[in-house]
Computed example of a mutant assay.
Amino acid sequence: MTTSPPARRHGKWLLRRPRSESAARLLCFPYSGMGASMYSRWPSFAGDVEICPVQLPARENRIGEPHYGSYERLAELAAEALLPHLDRPFAFFGHCGGALAAFATALRLHEIGGPTPACLLISSQVAPHDGPFGRFLGMSDGELRHELTTLTRELGGRPDPDVIELGLGVLRADLAANQRYHLAEPVMLRCALHAIGWSDDVEIRPEQMGGWRQYAPEGRFSATVLNGRHHTFLSAPDHLLAEFEQVMDKSLSAARSRENHDG
């Protein structure tokens, strides 16, 4: 008697199972030191686009797994694991360190000839050839503990010293990957790219994000500045969700037009 091979597990890389009826998906990569639960305040949909939080190794329900070590390795793992869920129009979103994880995964898919996002949405991060950049990269353990405590409260939680200490190890490993990530020059992707800056962000100023223009094909780069601070995105403010809807609609319409033209 033969047995069927076990089905591929969805739970490792996605916080929840994507809905088969969704017309498009927005896969959201977590901020440095955090897991997919940081998107717990976000709705399941932004308009017709399903929001799919991505879970990375070495945190939350994947705490027993080894850290990926570099964004290049993360991209290899993520591109393979997420492939079954890229069977319809999709986009990637990432904020700060999560933006680099999202970009590296999009780049990996581009390099292997896989499906690529209709749009890459980058929030509060400099382009890879302009980095590494950010005050977090030079912080002491004590300073990082303070940041994790603040972020925990931003997420509505009560900081627990043991949990903070566990998170510190993850954050250190994530920041090490960030410090090692640098491209000698921009790489042209096939997808549209939308840069999101925040008006009162003291970590990454909107004007520092201009280098991303060089990663998008002609006419497929856009940028906006939304009202808010570095962590405003955590609460899924209406103006951010509206931005997602507008950009996704534009990107998907452009993709359909190109397909019809090529056909």
Rank of each mutant, 00 (worst) to 15 (best):
M139C: 12
G114H: 01
R190W: 11
V187F: 10
N178L: 09
V163E: 11
E165G: 03
P186A: 00
S123I: 04
I122Y: 05
L121Q: 07
V170G: 13
S124N: 02
G197A: 06
D141Y: 04
A75M: 05
F136S: 14
R158W: 14
E76I: 01
T105Q: 04
A78K: 03
L74P: 00
L137H: 02
S70G: 00
R135A: 10
G157N: 05
G138K: 03
I204G: 10
F93Y: 14
R172E: 09
Q125V: 12
H146T: 15
G131S: 04
L121C: 10
R135Q: 15
L74G: 01
D87Y: 01
H182Q: 12
V126H: 07
E147I: 15
A192P: 07
F93R: 01
A184S: 14
E185R: 10
R153Q: 10
G114V: 00
I204V: 11
L189D: 01
V202T: 13
G114Q: 01
P186Y: 04
D200M: 06
A75E: 03
V170Y: 08
G134E: 09
R190P: 08
H146D: 13
P89W: 05
H95G: 15
E207P: 10
L193I: 13
V187M: 13
C96M: 11
Q125R: 14
V126L: 07
H194L: 07
P159E: 00
D87V: 07
Q125M: 08
R145D: 14
H67K: 02
L137W: 07
A127W: 10
P84H: 06
A127C: 08
H182D: 10
E185P: 15
G131T: 07
H110T: 13
L86P: 05
V170I: 11
